[in-house]
Computed example of a mutant assay.
Amino acid sequence: MMLSAPSQLLERNIELFNDEGWLIINPADAYFTDRLTDLSLDVLHQYFDIYAESVRVIPCTILDSRDILTTQTGIFSDQKVGKHQHFFAPFLSTPQRYSNIVIYLPKAKAHYAMLIKMAASLVQQGGSIYVVGENKGGIKSASKLLSNLGHVDKVDSARHCSLLRCEVAQPQPDFDIQQSLSYFDIAVNGQEATIASLPGVFSHEELDEGTHLLLEKLPSSLRGGILDFACGAGIIGCLLKRQFPHLNISYLDVSALALYSTAHTLAESGLTGTLMAANGLHGVDEQFNHIVTNPPFHTGIKTDYTVTKRFIADAARLITSGGNLHMVANRFLPYPGLLAETFERVQTLAQTNRFSVYQAIKV
């Protein structure tokens, strides 16, 4: 049970956590809170993998897109573990005000800006917002945005990470996630749709090249149940449903922000759908005729394909006989060989200088 580097820095400053009234946002691992078992605190998870590992009981959560649209608190799922209340949610709206909030720095600057606004609305006047993150992740420039709320101090620096603190002197406005939602229009294969997207969601505010290629090459023979895996803002499933209304499409992502965006994307087209929160395909038992995906684990050059192989094996388990997996991936990655280890037939449907679209058929 290895602590992430930011959590190691927090552990090094464990004396900060002497009083009640803490909110921790997006911990990078499920183990730092184990160091605080005697302290009552809340934890907001926008990512289901760490949430599920933290509460240790939930492999998958099923949501209705209509319920997501009407949630006022933002909470998709919550679980009490000892003195700790864990929430899986895209945002947190509560009359409670926390004395201290710690944010694990996210990758995207726009996501960080949104978290700062939300934290500012949840911290009590005179309370503190802490931000912890890796130096290579941009923590050195994170103080600028934080300084809009008050004076910023560097508490500590170690493990190639930094810990910042800002005392919020003035009361801040309520957080409204609708103000963070942005909308953009796309058109593929004669189908048009308006896409809703939040900061921190893949390909925020644009249709990425790989997804566009995949949508262009999907066959018209799709039938039955479809899983839009790693759905992001719901682009693939929404376009398919508009083009082929008879399809039964489910949307899966690890991110609450993505699922919230997908629900709004569907609503923009007058559609509804079943949304699933899961870590990969772990805990998913439903069978599908097709899985369609632009998966999240093919960026960069990695020699360890353990996660990819597990996804392929799980996909084959969930696909019915005669069904298939359609996916787009960076061209230089060895997906044909990896897919051929599990699926009987693998075809390359399209290729550009950057991406390849594969079809893997379960005979």
Rank of each mutant, 00 (worst) to 15 (best):
T70Q: 14
S54M: 08
N353I: 07
R159C: 09
I14Q: 11
G283K: 03
K80S: 13
H212N: 14
A110H: 07
I50L: 07
I68F: 08
I14L: 15
H111I: 05
L10F: 03
F91Y: 15
G273C: 12
G150F: 05
S147G: 05
L69G: 12
V168E: 03
A263T: 11
T308F: 10
E20V: 14
R165D: 06
G280K: 02
S40I: 14
I361N: 06
V254M: 11
F311W: 05
S203V: 06
P173D: 03
A158E: 09
H151F: 09
H326E: 08
D38C: 07
L39G: 10
A110T: 13
M327R: 07
D228P: 06
Y260Q: 04
S197K: 02
F297T: 11
I25A: 05
F332S: 15
S54L: 04
G232N: 03
F76D: 02
F343Y: 04
N100C: 10
V357N: 00
L227R: 01
E286M: 12
L207R: 10
A256Y: 00
L240W: 04
K80M: 13
L69P: 13
R310T: 12
K136T: 14
S182P: 00
Q125T: 15
L145V: 09
Y51W: 10
G280P: 04
F87Q: 01
R165W: 01
D253P: 10
A5K: 13
L198Q: 00
F184L: 05
E206V: 11
M114A: 03
S93Y: 09
L146N: 02
T73R: 13
D42K: 08
N330T: 10
R317K: 15
L16T: 08
V201K: 00
S4L: 00
F332N: 15
T308W: 08
D253N: 14
T70L: 14
L247H: 04
Y358E: 01
P173S: 05
A158Q: 11
M118D: 02
Y130Q: 06
S143F: 08
A313C: 11
I24K: 02
K109V: 10
A142E: 03
N189C: 13
A233G: 05
A258R: 00
A196I: 00
D153P: 10
D285P: 03
V292C: 10
S180Y: 04
R66M: 10
L259Y: 02
S65D: 06
A196P: 00
V292G: 04
V123S: 06
N289K: 13
L215W: 00
D67Q: 13
I249P: 04
I68T: 11
I68A: 09
R97E: 14
E216K: 15
N148H: 13
G337A: 11
C161E: 05
H246Y: 12
S197L: 01
D153M: 08
S77N: 15
V254G: 03
I235N: 02
Y130S: 06
D253K: 07
T61M: 12
I103E: 04
I312Q: 01
G74F: 08
A89E: 05
L44P: 00
G300I: 10
H326D: 09
D49W: 09
E167A: 15
L318K: 09
